[in-house]
Structure formats: structure tokens, C-alpha cells
Design a binder for these strands. Structure first.
Length: 474
RNA sequence: GGUCCCAUCGUCUAGCGGUCUAGGAUAUCGGCCUCUCACGCCGAAGACACGGGUUCGAGUCCCGUUGGGACUACCA
């Protein structure tokens, strides 16, 4: 007997950018659907017209695409599905599972405050519940929920969860402006879109019994629930903007690779033995709701940084060169020879944790005139290396094997003849060629730069040293 | 306040009653490699929140305490 096709969903509300936490629940839903050869649907929950923006919707879609989380259906917009909600509300009204409530918001607010100050539950008191009222201007529709018994469900990550129905009040299904509330819209959408697996943040566990009540009032089968723990900031409170960058796009712009972010997000709250690194296909193969942890976790950039460095090292240099272009442009470096960028990337791979770091570290390759790092200039570009600089400059300009091997040979000959150590001239040359005291290996750098550039840069350094000398002489 | 959820190194986590003198990763520190910085390799330090049970035996099961988080809207 073929099992039912798994249908998962990701329902962001377009009131802000896609953040790390949302991306992770999207990832889990996507992984589960892909693994079960099911479908993944994207739904935009924009019933809160005031706070929803098109810009946020675009940013969310862009984030999903960047992460490579492709959806099979949608995006559906709740704002365009009001007719559907309307018919379901009517259905509930017709069967007596819902009723019209005329209580004004002011009265409700006041009662809630009273109860709270008395230490009682601030829930709706059911004034209109059995009055058999009809619709009226300003009235809402409420669910007539059971006041006795318990609502219990099996959660795939948390286990059995059970709440006394007396804790739940008659929640509003339709607002006075006729729009559906979140709870109604979610349930109706999941029913009509065929969603049978709900994976979401555990800030929704308390909402689940309320939503189950709606399913029951409608006589519809319940989906499978899996509530994954929240992501916290370093201070162990819910991750938010004040913890720094939380938007997916911000990580893209800081130079992270999507695979690194995905890997980090997957490992936050989910594990597979001692394995730390996972390709997308491995994640699809190995993911399981059962091995999602129950405890909330702190989002840690250190680990992401390390993963990103690893993915950079593992990536093809040519591809990285393409991804690096916007970061080089940010530094004012345009129209670069793609071949030279690729070779530069090759030398920068083991020493870059982000694309941004890589661009900064590689920028010297593409600058016509270098500005020397202050400390390196003072310490290494000195008169006492002039002689060696000049000698090496001449040998290099006559070199006809400008490969790493050829250069190593040229240098070892020179060192042997003069009896000096490489250490004596390496740093001065490094500063001359790169402007910095830390860089890829000297010979690698020279190969990428090419003979003409190397000679030109050494000449410039020699001139620079002479100029400093003259300055001092005066 | 009430309800629900959670609790292993700084952080992410392995552990599903005996194999735990608690493993991995990251961060930190030390060493090796070395033309610098990285990478890589080797090593060090670092955790079962607390208290009761259950059991021959508990990080692992139960209860309580403490601490965290979520929800408690005509927001999602």
C-alpha cells in the first residue's frame, strides 16, 4: 500500500526579512519533503495587511532562492484566499461550532485587565456564547470550543503534549472587519492545500491545541506535528535584530556561502552522530524529525565562520571567482581578468573565512599602486635591504621560468651565493609586492602577478625606500 | 500570575540503564610545520544545574527544586 504523499509547508508572514530562525524551519520542512519524495509548499501569510509589505515578500523569496530551497507549489497569498476562509467560517456557523459575538474590544480589554489583576485567567468569559446572536456591525465570529476535557497530540519531536480545554477560550475566527484570524487561516489553508505535516517553531506548541479544536469542529483529520526548538541569541533570549545580523540576506552580503549557512542551520538542533559537515544530498538522506533535539540552541557565528571557511576551501576556484566579483566591486575593483581572479582565489582559499575577507585579502593583486601597511613599511622597507632588492629585481626580470618551481630555484641560488637567509628578504619583498605583512606565499604571489608586475612593484618599493632616505637626509 | 516546553564542556552537540575515568565539533591556550598569515597535524584545559527516589547499577527512568524559554490579542 503506497503511503500518503508527504506535504510540508513554509508560511512566513511578510512583515520583515527572512531571518535565521525562519530559514531553519523552512530548511527542515524542505528536507523532510525532499526525503519523503513529497511536496513543499510556500505560503505567504499576509492577513495582517497593515504590517505586510511587498518588499518583505520579495526579500523572502530571494532568500529562499539563494539558499536553494525550492518549493513545489505557491507562493500562495492568504490575502487572495478570503473567499475560501469565508466558506469555512460559514460552515462552522451553520453547524453551530461557531457563533457571533457582540462584545466590544473595550469591554474585553477591561475584563482582561480585571482578571489579570485578580490573578485569574485573562480569557474570554463566553458572554455571547449561548445568546444565538446574528451578525452585526463590529461583531466577530468565535469558535465555540469545549470547556471540559483535554486536547492531546503526539508531537514528532516533543512527544505527547496535553492541555486542559478549560485553558483555551473561544478564539476569534473572523475579525470585525471580516478578515480571518491567523488560526482560522492556517487551519483552512493547511486543509485545502493538502498539508499533512506541520514542522514549525515551538513558539507554536501552545497554539496547536487551539488549532486542533478548529480541525475537530470542521471534522477534518489532523496533520502530523513537529515543533522544533527556537533559536536563541548569545544571551539566551529569542534571536532578534538586537543580536546583530539575523537576516539571511545579510549573511549572503557578508560573504557566506549558502551551503555553509544551511549546514550550520541544520546542525543547530539536529545531529547525526558526530558528523559535522553535510552536503545538501546528505542532509536530505540523513535528516529525521526523531533526531531533532528538544532544547533551544544559541546561534553561534564562530561555528558558521569555520564552516564557511571549509566550504570556501572545498569550492572550485573558478566558481568562487564568480561569487567574489560583487565583493571586489565593493572595493572599487571592476572589470578584472577572470583568469587572474581565479588564480588569486586559489592562493586565498586557505586563508579566507568569508568572501568579503577573500576580496580584501586579494585586493592587492589588482591595485596598480600599493599603499604600504604602516608597520610593514617602517619595519621592512629599509635601506639595509636595498642591495638585495635590486639584485633580485634584476635576476627576476631576466628569469625565464616564472613558475613557483623556477622562482624557488632562482631564490635558493641567490641565497646560496650571498649566504643570507630567506627570512631576511621575505618580509621586505612581501611588503613590496602586497603592501602587507601577511599574505599568501611569496612565490605563489609572484606567479599570479607575473613578471612584469613583480618587477614594477619591486621598482616602486626601491624608489619608495630611496625617497624615505632623502627625506631623512634633509 | 496561569498553561505548555526545556536543562551534558563558553557555544553546537553525541549519549536512547552497565561499553562514560562522558565522545566529537567550535572557540581558547601550547607545540610542530614554516618566507609572513593561514591551512594542516599533535596536545592541554573545559560539562552531566541541584535534591530526592526507582534499580545490583542513572548523564540516561520518576518526582521535586532552581533556572531558562514560549504562549496567554480582533499579531503571525
Amino acid at each position: 500500500m503506497p503511503a500518503e504523499t508527504v506535504v510540508t509547508r513554509f508560511p512566513p508572514s511578510p512583515t520583515g526579512y527572512l531571518h535565521i530562525g525562519g530559514a531553519r524551519t523552512a530548511l527542515f520542512n524542505w528536507l523532510y519533503a525532499r526525503q519523503k519524495r513529497g511536496r513543499f509548499v510556500l505560503r505567504i501569510e499576509d492577513t495582517d495587511v497593515r504590517r505586510s509589505t511587498e518588499e518583505a515578500t520579495r526579500a523572502i523569496l530571494e532568500s529562499m532562492e539563494w539558499l536553494g530551497l525550492d518549493w513545489d507549489e505557491g507562493p500562495f497569498f492568504q490575502s487572495r484566499r478570503y473567499d475560501i476562509y469565508k466558506s469555512f467560517i460559514k460552515r462552522l456557523l451553520d453547524t453551530g461550532a461557531a457563533y457571533h459575538c457582540h462584545c466590544s474590544q473595550e469591554v474585553l480589554d477591561r475584563k482582561r485587565e480585571e482578571n489579570r489583576s485578580l490573578g485569574l485567567k485573562p480569557k474570554y468569559d463566553g458572554t455571547c456564547r449561548d445568546l444565538g446572536l446574528g451578525p452585526a456591525p463590529g461583531s466577530v465570529v468565535r469558535l465555540k470550543s469545549p470547556s471540559t476535557g483535554r486536547t492531546t497530540f503526539q508531537d514528532a519531536v516533543k512527544g505527547l503534549i496535553s492541555v486542559d480545554n478549560s485553558e483555551l477560550d473561544d478564539l476569534v475566527l473572523r475579525r470585525s472587519d471580516q478578515s480571518p484570524t491567523y488560526h482560522l487561516a492556517v487551519v483552512v489553508d493547511d486543509i485545502t492545500l493538502g498539508v499533512n505535516t506541520v514542522i514549525r517553531g515551538d513558539d507554536h506548541v501552545n497554539n496547536t491545541p487551539r488549532q486542533i479544536l478548529i480541525y475537530q469542529a470542521l471534522g477534518e483529520p489532523l496533520p502530523k506535528y513537529a515543533h522544533v526548538p527556537m533559536i536563541l541569541g548569545p544571551d539566551r533570549t529569542r534571536l532578534s535584530k538586537r543580536h546583530g545580523a539575523t537576516s539571511v540576506l545579510a549573511y549572503r552580503d557578508m560573504g557566506y556561502l549558502p551551503q555553509a549557512l544551511l549546514n550550520a542551520l541544520a546542525r543547530l538542533g539536529w545531529s547525526y552522530g558526530d558528523q559535522e559537515k553535510f552536503t545538501k544530498d546528505e542532509l536530505i538522506e540523513k535528516f529525521s524529525l526523531e533526531s531533532v533535539g528538544r532544547a533551544a540552541g544559541v546561534f553561534n557565528t564562530e561555528k558558521l565562520l569555520d564552516l564557511n571557511a571549509w566550504y570556501i576551501r572545498e569550492s572550485d576556484s573558478r566558481e568562487l571567482a564568480g561569487l567574489l566579483a560583487p565583493f571586489l566591486e565593493e572595493l572599487g575593483l571592476n572589470n578584472l581578468d577572470p583568469d587572474r581572479v581565479t588564480r588569486a582565489v586559489d592562493t586565498m582559499k586557505p586563508r579566507s573565512r568569508t568572501l568579503r575577507e577573500m576580496a580584501e585579502g586579494a585586493s592587492f593583486y589588482f591595485q596598480d599602486t600599493l599603499s604600504y601597511e604602516e608597520k610593514g613599511d617602517r619595519k621592512f622597507l629599509r635601506q639595509n635591504v636595498l642591495e638585495h632588492m635590486e639584485a633580485l629585481r634584476n635576476r627576476l626580470s631576466g628569469c625565464n621560468d616564472f613558475s613557483e618551481k623556477g622562482l624557488e630555484g632562482l631564490f635558493s641560488n641567490y641565497l646560496e651565493e650571498t649566504g643570507i637567509k630567506l627570512g631576511k628578504i621575505a618580509q621586505p619583498l612581501r611588503v613590496a609586492l602586497t603592501g602587507k605583512t601577511a599574505s599568501p606565499g611569496l612565490f605563489e604571489v609572484m606567479v599570479v602577478l607575473g613578471k612584469a608586475d613583480v618587477v614594477r612593484r619591486i621598482d616602486a618599493a626601491i624608489q619608495h625606500i630611496r625617497a624615505k632616505e632623502d627625506e631623512q637626509a634633509r
